[in-house]
Amino acid sequence: MKPLKIIKIGGNIIDNQKALASFLKQFAQLDGPKVLVHGGGKLASKLAAQMNVPVKMHEGRRITDVKTLDIITMVYAGKINKSIVAQLQAHNCNAIGFSGADGNTITSEKRPIKTVDFGFVGDIKSVNTNILETLLKEQITPVFCAITHNSSGQLLNTNADTIASELAIGFAKSYETELYYCFEKNGVLQDVSDDDSVIELITSEAYQTLLSEGIIADGMLPKLTNCFHAIENQVSKVCIGKPEMLFQSNTSFTTIQK
């Protein structure tokens, strides 16, 4: 059996209709079992502005109050998720959209208040892949948005990178699993101002050196935390780079290894 690919796409693809259409056409043609995880892009913030709901952020992370949760549920689980599923169907890739509540696939708990109250944000507690594995055997592709639930009727906004990592770990019990983070850069960069300075391989030891030298910082920190969390929990391969790494053999990207 071919490895199961868990592929996460971010706002740079979601926000660009042409880029999204191109990606989904190529994604549909990928051979073997696959799962797509998507973020929300800028559409939720745009809709919030139209509805006069303030967008509150802390260190790049969205604070999710009741009104904001309503908006991101409409946008993530509705508009974006169903549009992606429809486009995949147009390319003969049979897909079903998921939040963590669907099929009881991902349960979370509301993030505890420490220095900041993030509101209705979920930290993942468990992943149930039983239904998803049944779908994969029928060659149906799950498409996950960044929303989970707490088993008591409450939806929770959840980091899409974390959802991808935890899904990969959950599937690793049954599949050889590969995790791909697609974003706007060629990979993890030695110099953030030089797009060609891709670090092609990062081991656990090299990661500590890069941290101490300040080469890895800011938004890349949580992404790499998810990468190493996956590698340390039986995920066979983790890669970071532009979507082209999935479709072209001569593309530079970053591979994470123990």
Rank of each mutant, 00 (worst) to 15 (best):
M1P: 13
M1L: 14
L4G: 05
L4T: 06
K5A: 14
K8M: 10
I9W: 15
I14P: 09
I14H: 11
K18R: 14
A19R: 07
L20E: 00
L20A: 02
A21K: 15
Q26W: 10
K34C: 10
H38L: 08
G39S: 10
G39Q: 09
G40S: 06
G41K: 13
Q50V: 05
Q50K: 14
M51G: 02
P54F: 07
H58C: 00
R62E: 00
I63N: 00
D65E: 06
V66I: 05
D70M: 03
D70P: 00
I71V: 01
I71Q: 07
I72T: 11
M74Q: 02
V75P: 09
A77V: 07
A77Y: 09
G78E: 04
G78V: 04
K79T: 00
K79G: 00
I80D: 01
N81M: 03
K82H: 13
K82R: 13
I84Y: 15
A86P: 09
Q87S: 10
Q87C: 06
A90R: 13
A90S: 12
H91C: 07
C93Q: 14
C93S: 12
S99P: 04
A101V: 01
A101Y: 10
D102M: 01
T105K: 11
I106G: 08
I106M: 09
T107H: 15
T107F: 15
S108M: 06
I113M: 14
K114R: 11
V116Q: 07
V121N: 10
V121R: 12
I131H: 07
L132R: 10
E133P: 05
E133K: 15
T134K: 14
T134D: 11
T134E: 09
L136N: 03
L136D: 08
I140Y: 13
T141G: 08
T141P: 05
T141R: 10
F144R: 05
A146K: 11
I147E: 06
I147T: 09
T148I: 00
Q154I: 04
L156K: 14
N157Q: 06
T158S: 08
N159A: 11
A160C: 12
I163S: 10
S165D: 04
I169E: 07
F171L: 01
A172F: 09
K173G: 03
Y175G: 04
Y175A: 03
E176K: 06
E176H: 04
T177L: 13
E178P: 06
E178K: 13
L179M: 14
F183D: 13
G187L: 08
L189C: 03
Q190M: 06
D191T: 00
D191V: 02
V192G: 01
S193V: 00
D194V: 01
E200R: 15
E200S: 15
I202E: 02
T203Q: 01
S204Y: 06
E205R: 04
A206S: 13
Y207V: 00
L210T: 00
L210C: 01
L211I: 02
L211A: 03
G214I: 00
D218Y: 08
G219Y: 12
M220H: 12
L224V: 03
L224I: 13
L224Y: 05
C227W: 07
F228P: 10
A230M: 11
E232Y: 10
S236V: 04
S236K: 15
K237Y: 15
C239Y: 14
C239L: 15
G241L: 10
P243M: 02
P243G: 02
L246A: 12
L246G: 12
L246H: 14
L246S: 11
F247M: 07
F247R: 11
S252V: 01
F253P: 04
F253H: 15
